[in-house]
Design a binder for these strands. Structure first.
Length: 730
DNA sequence: AGAGTCTAGCTTTTT
DNA sequence: GCTAGACTCT
């Protein structure tokens, strides 16, 4: 595309940001303001009019998906392949750097990336080695602590325990963990960034090279950068003015995992020459939705300040539905979606967003009952599935016999008679001789130390791997994976397991073979051949699998309702959006209510949710919600009340409203709430000859066939056929 | 080794 | 009140 053509399609603010002078810049880009366009066109503009080579640009995104998208858009614009261009996540860029400069970084040439799961297992092992009681010091917490330190750029010797037992204990775990990582050539996610940062500081020549090379640095989602990422950017930038960051402080929702909203707030003092741009025109939502979003977020202090506007028109009010309980809430949503579909819309155009994953179950059940197609995002990702991880562990052993994590995972999977006891012997031997589990196992089988039976089982395993390695030497990646899955016994194992679960696992393993078939390292612009001549295709595949967990599964092509947490909805948009469970204690979550900072983050999360909606937004809440086994009676979320009532249309289906959301509701619409084809109402009090008094919670069916769920004061909740139960209205 | 039993914990999640 | 993970028993 021609440059003038590009510029003409932009609004004045976007154009100003795209054509900003080369220097420090802060682009505050509101939700739906065309941020991605600005970023890619900035690069195109720099390349086409400023004579800047794309290879002199460093562009950082937060997810691999965003990186891939940006790359392909830039390639499209510039009509040239940009394989060597540095576009990627902080982690993938650091990985690329470390592969190229492993020696300077003090790493093994064949270092491998371990993911969160490997990390947890490793820490568990360390806890037992150090004889630390994992009841008192949970491995999960230790991992969290270690990562938090690394995210802050802190090594063990930067930390003083000051006599604090908590810190002292975790510090000793951190030390042992680091040792284990170094010994095994393992690098965790945080380590990638920390290590690159340290290497640059320690190697002035390298640092100079990269500072020279990158004339421009662009960062997306800057509000989500953590301390080490910011430090990393500062080092690469040096004293030059070449860093353009794009972000939205109102959409910072990852503070709980180390993101520092302060980074965006203090950018201008760190880069005093920075020019700031505000993208406030929104191309996504109706005026009403934006007014609601603006009103909500204004309750936060310390904002950089920004108000979204649109010329798309007012649109419908936001509907607020006060459900009797979570089941009623789900049914209301189902009913609205059916309506939406009946009007000729697609299911994929509506999304149900919620605060926590636990809410999805009731919603899912409602979808199933109504036979609506749906897709739940989140949950387990492809490369995190147990069977995939096991297959990958075999593959890893093929390339890296000394990978202890892989060894532990599959020595006895499928079961081959190597019990805990034998594994412990191997572990002890490995630790005392400072060798890998593989080497220790090999020694034990040749020099004794195991029971004869265990010994033969272990050598069977070792031979299996060695033989497999030889047998697959000349195979392509897909066949190598296929052969591995087969020869390892994993396939037979899951075939034997049978059932739907086993079937799904087999299908996933097949999917892995397909992934191998379609894997093309050239698609992963992470590896320059010049940089990593020694990496085999398998190694590249494994690195890729660790670094990119892969999207959750599901038919992407099927037209289905999109269900996800508000966190995972960031960056997406849908014509019809439901925000479900808007109740105090759930959203804002109980655990975030006491601290102002965390409450503000919850509010930003709500803001993110609201701004996903394009044309119609529904809020729902339940007066009674069954959560963690107990019924909770929650008030409507304060976030709802922070939005002016004039923007909201309240919908009620029943009279038993304990606490109306608004004392004086301007618009209240009533919808039918009777049990279909009967005189009974949801939430109605009824009497039963045997069970006494109760309240109707739910129903299914119609008229004579209707069944109702009644919560009786004396005997609890029961499902009753209405035609038999002879309920009395009270 | 596998099934059955018990118990803690229970927000959000990418790399 | 459910579920995952640890633990126990056969």
């Amino acid at each position: 595309m021609d440059v003038t053509e590009i510029l003409e399609s932009l609004n004045p603010e976007q154009r100003a940001a795209v054509t900003a002078p080369q220097g420090s810049a802060l682009v505050l880009a509101g939700a739906g303001s065309g941020k991605t366009r600005v970023l890619t066109q900035r690069i195109a503009w720099l390349a086409q009019t400023q004579g800047l080579s794309p290879f002199g640009i460093l562009a950082v995104t937060f997810t691999n998906k965003a990186a891939a998208e940006m790359r392909s858009r830039i390639e499209e614009h510039l009509a040239m392949p940009l394989r060597g261009m540095w576009v990627g996540t902080f982690h993938s860029l650091a990985h690329r750097f470390l592969r190229a400069h492993w020696l300077d970084a003090g790493l093994d040439q064949s270092f491998q990336i371990i993911d969160a799961d490997d990390q947890l297992r490793l820490v568990k092992r360390i806890l037992s080695n150090l004889s630390i009681d994992d009841k008192k010091w949970p491995a999960k917490q230790a991992v969290w602590w270690i990562n938090a330190q690394k995210d802050e750029g802190l090594r063990p010797n930067h930390i003083q325990d000051e006599g604090d037992l908590y810190i002292r204990t975790h510090l000793s775990i951190y030390r042992a963990y680091e040792e284990a990582c170094d010994r095994g050539g393992m690098v965790d996610f945080a380590e990638l960034l920390l290590r690159m940062h340290e290497t640059l500081l320690a190697q002035p020549a390298l640092l100079n090279h990269y500072r020279e090379r990158f004339k421009v640095i662009l960062v997306d989602e800057f509000q989500d950068t953590n301390a080490i990422q910011y430090a990393w950017l500062r080092v690469l930038t040096g004293n030059a003015d070449k860093l353009m960051v794009v972000g939205d402080d109102d959409q910072s929702i990852y503070g709980w995992r180390g993101a520092k909203i302060e980074n965006i707030q203090r950018f201008q003092s760190d880069y005093p020459n920075a020019i700031s741009y505000r993208l406030e025109q929104n191309y996504r939502s109706t005026g009403t939705i934006l007014d609601a979003a603006n009103a909500l977020i204004e309750h936060n202090t310390d904002r950089l300040g920004k108000a979204l506007w649109t010329d798309l028109g007012r649109g419908d009010p936001v509907s607020l539905y006060a459900a009797y309980n979570e089941i009623d809430e789900a049914r209301y949503i189902v009913e609205r979606i059916k309506n939406f579909f009946a009007e000729g819309n697609a299911y994929r155009d509506c999304a149900i967003l919620y605060r926590s994953n636990a809410q999805s179950r009731v919603l899912e059940e409602a979808m199933l009952r109504s036979q609506l197609p749906y897709r739940i995002y989140g949950g387990q990702r492809f490369f995190e599935r147990a069977e995939i991880r096991s297959a990958l562990a075999y593959l890893k052993l093929l390339s890296q016999r000394h990978s202890d994590a892989a060894f532990e995972r599959v020595v006895n999977l499928p079961p081959r008679g190597i019990g805990d006891k034998s594994i412990q012997i191997i572990r002890d031997a490995a630790r005392s001789t400072n060798q890998s589990l593989w080497t220790a196992a090999l020694n034990l089988t040749t020099h004794g130390g195991l029971t004869p039976r265990a010994s033969s089982a272990v050598s069977g395993f070792l031979n299996l791997i060695d033989d497999l390695d030889v047998a697959t030497e000349n195979l392509d990646l897909a066949h190598l994976i296929e052969e591995t899955v087969d020869a390892s016994g994993l396939k037979a194992f899951y075939e034997k397991e049978g059932g739907e679960k086993g079937q799904a696992r087999l299908e996933n393993l097949e999917e892995l073979v397909t992934a191998g078939q379609t894997f093309d390292p050239d698609d992963v612009p992470l590896f320059d051949e010049a940089v990593q001549p020694d990496m085999t295709l398998l190694d590249e595949f494994l690195s890729q699998a660790a670094l990119e967990a892969g999207a959750g599964q599901g038919d992407q092509n099927q037209d289905s309702i999109q269900m996800m947490t508000m966190h995972s909805a960031k960056g997406l948009e849908f014509p019809l959006v439901f925000l479900a469970g808007l109740e105090e204690g759930l959203f804002p979550h109980q655990m975030s209510m006491d601290e102002p900072g965390r409450l503000a983050e919850e509010r930003r999360l709500c803001y993110v949710g609201v701004t996903r909606a394009m044309t119609k937004l529904y809020f729902t809440y339940a007066e009674t919600r069954r959560l963690n086994g107990t019924d909770r009676y929650n008030r409507v979320s304060r976030f709802v009340q922070e939005i002016p009532a004039t923007l909201i249309e309240e919908v009620r289906s029943h009279e038993a409203l304990v606490r109306p959301a608004y004392q004086t509701s301007h618009q209240v619409k009533r919808v039918a709430s009777e049990v279909s084809g009967t005189e009974f109402q949801l939430g109605q009090k009824v009497g039963h000859a045997k069970f006494g008094e109760g309240v109707i919670l739910n129903y299914e069916g119609h008229g004579q066939q209707a069944r109702v769920q009644v919560k009786f004061e004396a005997v609890g909740t029961k499902w009753l056929m209405l035609s038999f139960a002879k309920l009395q209205s009270i």
